[in-house]
Design a protein around this nucleic acid. Structure first.
Length: 462
RNA sequence: GGCGUCGUACCCAAGUGGCUUAAGGGGGCGGUUUGCAAAACCGUUAUUCGCCGGUUCGAAUCCGGCCGACGCCUCCA
C-alpha cells in the first residue's frame, strides 16, 4: 500500500510521491522566538516529528528544514519590553526551544536557518517580484504583494476573496496599500524599529513575515520540494502568502504536499496567552510528565483532529508508557539483546497500513496494544520461543523509532533503596510478612515500588 | 455574510456503505496469579454511534433538515 497524506491544497488524501525517488525535502514552520514555546506549539512539532520519523522508517532520506523566526513584530516588541538587544533575546529563546525539543525526543532538523541570516535571499526574491510587477512600493518604503496579480490566490485556504467581507480588524487598520488584503513583503523602517533594520535597494527596513519562509525554503530546498507543514493557523494567511510569493518569484510549483496539524485545546478552549490557559514544557516537567507521556498524549489523537490537553489525562499516559516499558524490561530479562531471531511479527504490516493511511497514529497504537497483550500472555504462561522474543524486541524498536514513547532506561535506583529491598527479601525468606510489608511501605514513601517476581524482586519508580 | 470542521461508552479515541450484531487506551467491577500487594493476564462495562427523516438489499458511515460545540476570513503551531 502506498503512503497517502491528506493534502490541504487539494483537500483530499493523495498518494505521496516524492519528486526525487527515495528522497524527501521537507520544510516545517518553526517557532517565533519571542517567548517559550507552549504545548500547543509542540503538538505541531511532534506531529512533524512523527511524519519525519515515519518517512525515515519507510526508507526515505529526509532533508528537513525548520526555520527560526527571529525578526518580526513580536520579537521586536519583546526585545523593546525587555530592553534587551533583539539578537540576545532571540538567542535565548532559540536555546530554550532547542532544549525543549530535545527533551521531547524530537529528531533535530538538518538545518535551522534563522530569518536574520537569510535577508539577502529575501531581498533577492522581493526584487524579482518587483521586476515582475507582482509587488509595488508604498510611500513609506514598504513593499506589498498585489494579490490581484496572482489569480490562484486563495487556493490553499479555499477562500473566494471577492466574496469576503471586510472584517472590523481590517477596516480599523490604517492602510496606504492598494488593497487591504495585500500583504507586506518588506516593512519600511519606522522610529520604533530602532536599530533593527537592513539596507535594501529600495531603502532601509525589515522583511515581512511571510517572505522569510519563502526565502529560507528556497535557499535550502530549491524552488520545488515535497512537503510543507505547519499548524492549521498557518494556512491563512501565512502559507497562502508563501505560495503566492514563491510561485510568482520562481515560476515553479513550490511545495507538493501541504500537511497541517489541528489545534490543541486546553480543558475546553483554545490556548491563549491572554487567558493564561497554556502549558509550557517547564510547567509539564514540574507536574511530573515524562517526554514519552507527552508524546503519547499528543499522538494518541489523529493529527487532523482537535484534541484536548488535560492534566487529568496524565495518569493514562503514565500507565501506557509504563506498560510499554515493562514489556521492554521483560524482554531484556528474557535475553532480547542476544536473541538470534530478528524479524517483525505479522501485525507489523497492519501497523504500517494504518500509518500509511495519513498517519493514523491512534489506529497503529491500537494494533500495538492488542499485540502487546498477546505477547505478555505468552510470556506469562511460559509458552514462547526465541522467535517471540526476537519479534517482540524488533516491534518494540519500531514503535520507538516512529513514536518515541518507549523509555530508554529505568531510573537510577539509590543504594539505600536497594539495601532496603535486600532486607525485605531476607524478611520474606523468613516469612516475616509484617517486616516485609513495613519495608515495602518505607520504600514506597521514598518514591519506589517493589514488585515481587518468581525470580526475586524488581524496583520501579512510583 | 463566505469557507470549513466536529458531535461514537464514565473519560480519551479509531472506524467514513457489508470484513464492525462499533477497534484500542484509561477508569470501574469480577476473576487468575501472589504470603499480601504490585505488575501481567482473563472476563465484563455502547443492540448503539447528537436528534429527526430519506436513499439503499444493507448506514455510525451517503443525502436533507434540526440541535449543539468550534475553526478560519492579515501576521496565533
Amino acid at each position: 500500500m502506498p503512503i497517502r497524506f491528506y493534502n490541504t491544497l487539494t483537500r483530499k488524501k493523495e498518494v505521496f510521491q516524492p519528486i526525487k525517488e527515495g528522497e524527501v525535502g521537507m520544510y516545517t514552520c518553526g517557532p517565533t522566538v519571542y517567548d517559550y514555546a507552549h504545548i500547543g506549539n509542540f503538538r505541531t512539532f511532534i506531529f512533524e516529528d512523527l511524519l519525519k520519523r515515519y518517512l525515515l522508517h519507510r526508507g526515505y532520506k529526509v532533508y528537513h528544514i525548520m526555520n527560526i523566526t527571529d525578526i518580526d513584530d513580536k520579537t521586536i516588541k519583546r526585545s523593546r519590553e525587555e530592553n534587551t538587544p533583539l539578537g540576545q533575546m532571540t538567542d535565548k529563546f532559540t536555546g530554550h526551544f532547542m532544549d525543549d525539543s530535545n527533551w521531547l525526543k524530537i529528531i533535530p532538523a538538518n538545518e535551522y536557518p534563522r530569518a536574520t541570516d537569510s535577508i539577502p535571499k529575501m531581498i533577492e526574491m522581493i526584487q524579482l517580484l518587483l521586476e515582475k510587477k507582482y509587488a509595488y512600493t508604498d510611500n513609506d518604503g514598504s513593499i506589498y504583494f498585489n494579490i490581484q496579480s496572482y489569480p490562484d490566490y486563495g487556493q490553499l485556504t479555499n477562500l473566494d476573496l471577492n466574496a469576503q467581507r471586510t472584517t472590523n480588524r481590517i477596516a480599523s487598520d490604517e492602510y496606504t496599500k492598494d488593497d487591504p488584503q495585500d500583504f507586506a513583503l518588506w516593512k519600511g523602517w519606522k522610529e520604533e524599529d530602532g536599530d533593527v533594520a537592513w539596507d535594501a535597494p529600495w531603502g532601509k527596513g525589515r522583511p515581512g513575515w511571510h517572505i522569510e519562509c519563502s526565502a529560507m525554503s528556497n535557499q535550502y530546498l530549491g524552488d520545488h520540494f515535497d512537503i510543507h507543514c505547519g499548524g492549521v493557523d498557518n494556512i491563512f494567511p501565512h502559507h497562502e502568502n508563501e505560495i503566492a510569493q514563491s510561485k510568482c518569484a520562481t515560476d515553479q510549483p513550490f511545495a507538493n504536499h501541504w500537511l497541517h496539524s489541528e489545534h490543541l485545546l486546553v480543558e475546553g478552549g483554545k490556548m491563549s496567552k491572554s487567558l493564561g490557559n497554556f502549558y509550557q514544557i517547564k510547567d509539564l516537567v514540574d507536574l511530573g510528565y515524562s517526554p514519552e507521556n507527552i508524546r503519547y498524549q499528543l499522538l494518541s489523537g489523529h493529527y487532523r483532529t482537535r484534541i484536548t490537553f488535560s492534566a487529568d489525562k496524565k495518569h493514562e499516559g503514565d500507565r501506557v508508557v509504563n506498560r510499554i516499558f515493562d514489556l521492554k524490561s521483560r524482554l531484556i530479562e528474557l535475553g532480547a539483546y542476544s536473541a538470534a531471531e530478528s524479524q517483525l511479527p505479522a501485525v507489523y504490516n497492519e501497523f504500517i497500513n494504518k500509518l500509511d493511511d495519513d498517519l493514523d497514529s491512534p489506529g497503529a497504537l491500537s494494533l500495538f496494544f492488542q499485540w502487546m497483550r498477546t505477547q505478555n500472555s505468552k510470556f506469562d504462561k511460559g509458552i514462547y520461543n526465541d522467535r517471540d522474543i526476537g519479534e517482540s524486541w524488533e516491534f518494540l524498536c519500531v514503535l520507538e523509532s516512529i513514536f518515541g514513547i518507549v523509555k530508554i532506561d529505568s531510573d537510577h535506583i539509590p543504594n539505600e533503596v536497594i539495601h532496603l529491598a535486600e532486607q525485605r527479601e531476607e524478611a520474606r525468606k523468613e516469612e516475616n510478612w509484617e517486616k516485609a510489608d513495613k519495608i515495602r511501605d518505607e520504600v514506597q514513601s521514598k518514591g519506589w515500588i517493589i514488585e515481587d517476581l518468581v525470580t526475586g524482586y524488581k524496583i520501579k519508580k512510583t
